[in-house]
Design a protein around this nucleic acid. Sequence first.
DNA 1: CACGTTTTCTTGACTCGTTCCAGAAACGGT
DNA 2: ACCGTTTCTGGAACGAGTCAAGAAAACGTG
Lengths: 148, 148
Amino acid sequence: MTELSTAAPPTFEGLLRDAGLRVTAPRLAVLAEVHAAPHSDVDTVVRAVRDRLGRVSTQAVYDVLRALTDAGLLRRIEPAGSPARYEARVRDNHHHVVCRRCGAIGDVDCATGAAPCLEASDPQGFLIDEAEVTYWGLCPACQASGGS
Amino acid sequence: MTELSTAAPPTFEGLLRDAGLRVTAPRLAVLAEVHAAPHSDVDTVVRAVRDRLGRVSTQAVYDVLRALTDAGLLRRIEPAGSPARYEARVRDNHHHVVCRRCGAIGDVDCATGAAPCLEASDPQGFLIDEAEVTYWGLCPACQASGGS
DNA sequence: CACGTTTTCTTGACTCGTTCCAGAAACGGT
DNA sequence: ACCGTTTCTGGAACGAGTCAAGAAAACGTG
């Protein structure tokens, strides 16, 4: 079926086809937007998609984001106190720094090799498949402005 | 001011006074409930408080939870996709395992001593004050029931 | 290239968790 | 016991996200 080499399709259309998803304008626009502006929230994506395509319903964007996330083309992150955000860096086990004041998000690669804190000391019988690390602090801009 | 030794006041009333908070029935009830049932969500706390005290407004519970959290007597955790939950273990830097299916939460002590992944490889200029680790997986019960 | 099936998008209403507001009630220092 | 301050009540409101039914578009086939 997927005869064509899935080596590294550079186009968004290729990404969609390889994932077994239909190619539609909203999906291409959402993919492009999240690749262009990582850590976008839904509202930002909706606005960007409408800039490109004109009239697109909010639900379409929610549906597309879910489909792309389920297909592994996007990753959903949800820092406490913020609406959900989406990024295109996928399957590379990186983490995030979140600014307590303005909510800005940055990517942080794993320090300790591939799996930093992946093993809990006593997982209480849980079968763990992912360790998510969130660093909380102040972004450079907020350190400068709000001194206290 | 705080002349009396704040060594280890065993009563909830003592905890409140030492934190400079007024002692009220809703606050005592909330403290007792969260100590008794860690990782409770707001609705659970509301029900428990009403069981003890009779009529208590939902807002009172929200206000109390915020006041106790700000005072450092409770800790608020907010796993993605779940409503906020509260626990009484505070200032001991432990982490959580969350069941992907049923949302159950367990405590996990730091494996690597006091600060496991506390230092990001490249914090991008962020001033980090906390590293929050969430382990995702399946709790024992969900492993047993939903095999697939 | 037209057809029919399947998937996707639109519109609108709705749920859930949480917050805001004004006023009544309770706390606790003097 | 009194009075100023803080806390609680009740009701309305908000944002994020979901559900449901039908219209529209994308794909595999002949």
